[in-house]
Design a protein around this nucleic acid. Structure first.
Lengths: 224, 224
DNA sequence: CGCACGCTTCGGCCGCCACCGAACCGTGCG
DNA sequence: CGCACGGTTCGGTGGCGGCCGAAGCGTGCG
C-alpha cells in the first residue's frame, strides 16, 4: 500500500458530497449526533450511519456513546487542517481571488453551542483562571466568590436553569479548555449585548468589533 | 454551490487511485509528460488523458505544450500543501505513530532531474549569484569567469555535451530560481561525490550528511 | 512526403457505491 | 411493561465514472 493509494482512500472519503457535508458541519469542533449529521448531510439516517462508520473506521472521526445518542467529532486537529487545506484549494473560485479565510476566522473566535471558543474563548478562560475567578480542570469547574462578584460587575448574569453552572469544554483548534455551562453562555451573551462581538451570517465564526478589541483588552487583558 | 460541495468535488479528484498516483508523482515539483504520468498512474494513455483534463480543468495542474509533448506540473504551492495535508492524515498508520515527514524533507533538499532543488538548491544559487559567480534570470543564465574558476576549484567539472550550460529552473516549494543545466548537474554530482549528500531510497528527497552540513557552510555559507 | 509518435476523442462495457425501504437492537420514559 | 426514538444492518436498485479499443489530429523527423 503506497503513499498515493493511502492518500486516495482518505481523499475518496472526503470526495462524497454527503460525507463532505458531515465533515464540514464538524469543522467548528462541536460534537453532533448521528441524526443531526444526517440532516446536515441531507441524506437518510441509514445512509448517514454507513458514512459515519466509514469515517470513524478511517480514523477521521471520534465517536462517543452517551445515553442513546452517539456523538461524533473530528478525531484530531490534523483532520481539521486537512479539511482547511482542501477548502483553500477549492475556495478561491467563488467570490474573487481571495483564498479561503474561514479556517483562520474560526480559529480566532467562534461560538461553540452558546458559549465562546477559539483563541478568544481560551484567552478569556485563561484570564479568569489566572485572576482566581475560576478554577477549571478537565473534569469540572467552579467559580470563586471573587469571580461571582467580577462577573456580576461585568453584567454577565447567568440564565436561571438546571444546567451545570461552570463546565470546561475542550477546544478543538487550541487543544485547551475554554468556559462552558451557564456561566460560559452568560459571558458570551454579555459580549454580544455590549456590541463587542457580531455573529457571522452563515458560519459559527464571530467578528470582534472595534469596541470589542478595546473592551477585551481593558477588561480581560485579551488581545487577538 | 456550498463550501462543502466544492470541497467534495476537489477531494473526489484526489480520491481516484490513478489520479492520486499522478499527483503524487508531481509532488517534487517536476514537470512530466502525459505518457510518463500514464506510467506512474499504471493506466493507459487514453485514461490518463482524461484524468489530466479533469485535473487541469479543476486548476490543480498546469499544462505547457512543448513540441509534441505536453508537460504537466502542480499548479500552485497550495496544491502541494493540500496533498501534504492529506498525506499527513493518511500516513501515520504505516510504520508507527510518526506523522508524514516527506513534505518537509522534499522542501529542504531534493533532486530535480539531475540537479538540486528545495531550500538547498535555492541557497546555492543565491550564494553564487551574490558572489558574482553566476548571473541568473528567468529566461537564462550565465557563469562568469570568476565562477568558472571557483567551480573548477570546487571540483565541479561539468559533463561534456550539447545540453545548455547554465539554466534557471523555477523551484516549486520556494517559488524562486535554482541552478539547472550542465553546471547544475556538475554541482550536484560533486556534492554527492564528496559525501555531503545522500540519496533517499525511494524518494527524490536528499539527506544532508554531517560533513555536508559543515562543508556547505564553509564553502557556500549555506546553513539549513 | 510519409511514417512514427504523443496525445486526444469517442463509444461501449463493467464494477463499484451511494441511496433508501424495511426490519432489527438497545435505551429512555411514561 | 409498552411505546417512542436513536441508531444500525440488510438487500435490492440505479447511476455515475473509470477503463480500454479504435480512430482521429497535430507535430517532428528521416
Amino acid at each position: 500500500m503506497s503513499d498515493a493509494s493511502r492518500m486516495a482512500s482518505i481523499a475518496a472519503l472526503l470526495g462524497d458530497p454527503a460525507r463532505a457535508n458531515i465533515l464540514s458541519a464538524l469543522m467548528d469542533g462541536r460534537a453532533l449526533t448521528a441524526k443531526e449529521l444526517a440532516f446536515a448531510a441531507r441524506v437518510s439516517p441509514q445512509t448517514t450511519s454507513g458514512h459515519l462508520a466509514k469515517l470513524t473506521e478511517a480514523g477521521l472521526l471520534d465517536a462517543a456513546r452517551q445515553g442513546r445518542h452517539r456523538y461524533f467529532r473530528l478525531a484530531s486537529p490534523l483532520v481539521g487542517q486537512m479539511l482547511e487545506a482542501v477548502m483553500a484549494v477549492a475556495g478561491p473560485d467563488e467570490r474573487h481571488g481571495a483564498p479561503w479565510r474561514g479556517g483562520e476566522a474560526l480559529r480566532t473566535a467562534r461560538t461553540c453551542y452558546d458559549h465562546l471558543a477559539g483563541r478568544l474563548g481560551v484567552g478569556l478562560a485563561d484570564t479568569l483562571v489566572a485572576r482566581g475567578h475560576v478554577v477549571l480542570g478537565t473534569d469540572g469547574g467552579e467559580v470563586t466568590a471573587d469571580g461571582q462578584a467580577f462577573l456580576r460587575d461585568f453584567g454577565a448574569d447567568p440564565p436561571a436553569g438546571r444546567r451545570v453552572f461552570c463546565r470546561p469544554c475542550l477546544d478543538w483548534s487550541e487543544r485547551r479548555l475554554h468556559l462552558a455551562g451557564r456561566i460560559g453562555a452568560a459571558l458570551a451573551n454579555r459580549c454580544f449585548a455590549l456590541g463587542w462581538l457580531e455573529r457571522h451570517r452563515d458560519s459559527r465564526a464571530v467578528r470582534i468589533t472595534a469596541e470589542g478589541q478595546a473592551g477585551l483588552v481593558e477588561v480581560f487583558g485579551v488581545r487577538l
